[in-house]
Simulated scan of single mutants.
Amino acid sequence: MARKHGANKVVISVYATRLPTGVFPSELSAHAFSVLREAYPSVEPIEDGLSGALMNAGPIIHPPLIMMNAGPLEHFDAWDIHNEGTQPSIRSVTTALDNERIAVREKLGYKPSHFPLANHYASEGEEWMYGRGAHGKLTDSGDWRENIDLHSHRYMLEDTRMGLSFIVSVGRWAGQPTPVAEGLLSIASAITGQDLFAQGRTLEMLGLDSLSQAQMRSLLTYGIHA
């Protein structure tokens, strides 16, 4: 994780230690990982590209933090959503949202580890993507005491509009409810005055919502053939 500190300086606060990674099409995984490991030795192979997409932590961490800290974010010049903004009530929503992500993965037959976000905050147990103590490093750095505009920041336009919409869409396609994700997406749409699901990176938008699960597995394995 990095932040810009002036015109010619970037500070890296946290390095990834485990990167669950899916390849599309998955039949090329062996070759892809032989190349990827040259640049990113922390990559960990998982089933396929959809499995990888459902490992994205941004839509789990950021939407609850910005929506449930909306008042302080708009009132103060800068507010650290990872420090004073991460309170027990917000963490409980984050956990419920992450449980929905994991439930969608399990509905599709993907196996552990699902990299539960709770491990990001824990001092013991399975190591998460950014290693032990990553949350403390973020808050200690002070780099996340940001001015977050709820209408234009990437936490809204990427993690919410693109990320949450994808989880909701895949859940609907698979028949797995995602009420917390849908609720946060609805609140975000009310804040921005835009239908973020309709604008999102959904299976509907990608033209994949009509596929059966068998067809989706074939696509993920072999790709698109002319």
Rank of each mutant, 00 (worst) to 15 (best):
M216S: 13
E44R: 12
Y40R: 02
M156F: 08
Y130K: 04
A174D: 06
S29L: 07
G6D: 02
S42L: 01
T86P: 00
S186P: 00
S123Y: 03
L164Q: 01
D195M: 05
R217G: 10
E100Y: 05
Q194P: 01
A226W: 08
A181Y: 06
T202H: 07
Q176L: 05
E74W: 00
S123N: 14
S13V: 13
S152T: 15
S34F: 00
H225S: 13
N83I: 00
S92M: 12
L117N: 03
P25N: 06
A174G: 07
A198M: 07
E74D: 06
A30H: 13
A188S: 15
T86N: 13
I12A: 06
I167W: 02
T202S: 13
V104T: 11
H82L: 14
H153G: 09
N83S: 13
A32R: 07
T192W: 00
E84A: 11
P45K: 02
L73R: 11
G207R: 11
N83K: 14
E158R: 04
D159A: 13
R91L: 15
E74Y: 00
A32M: 12
L150C: 05
S92G: 02
E204W: 02
V170G: 09
D195P: 07
E27C: 07
A190C: 11
A214K: 11
N147C: 09
Y40S: 06
P59H: 01
A188I: 09
T139D: 01
E126T: 09
Q215L: 01
E47N: 09
E124P: 01
Y40N: 03
Y110N: 14
P63C: 02
S186R: 11
P25V: 10
G125A: 06
D209N: 14
A103G: 06
A30D: 15
V43A: 10
Y110T: 12
G22P: 10
T160N: 02
P25I: 08
P41F: 02
D77R: 14
Q176G: 04
V43M: 03
Y110S: 13
E44W: 01
S165A: 15
L220T: 10
P72C: 03
A32T: 05
E158I: 14
N8I: 00
L19W: 10
S165L: 08
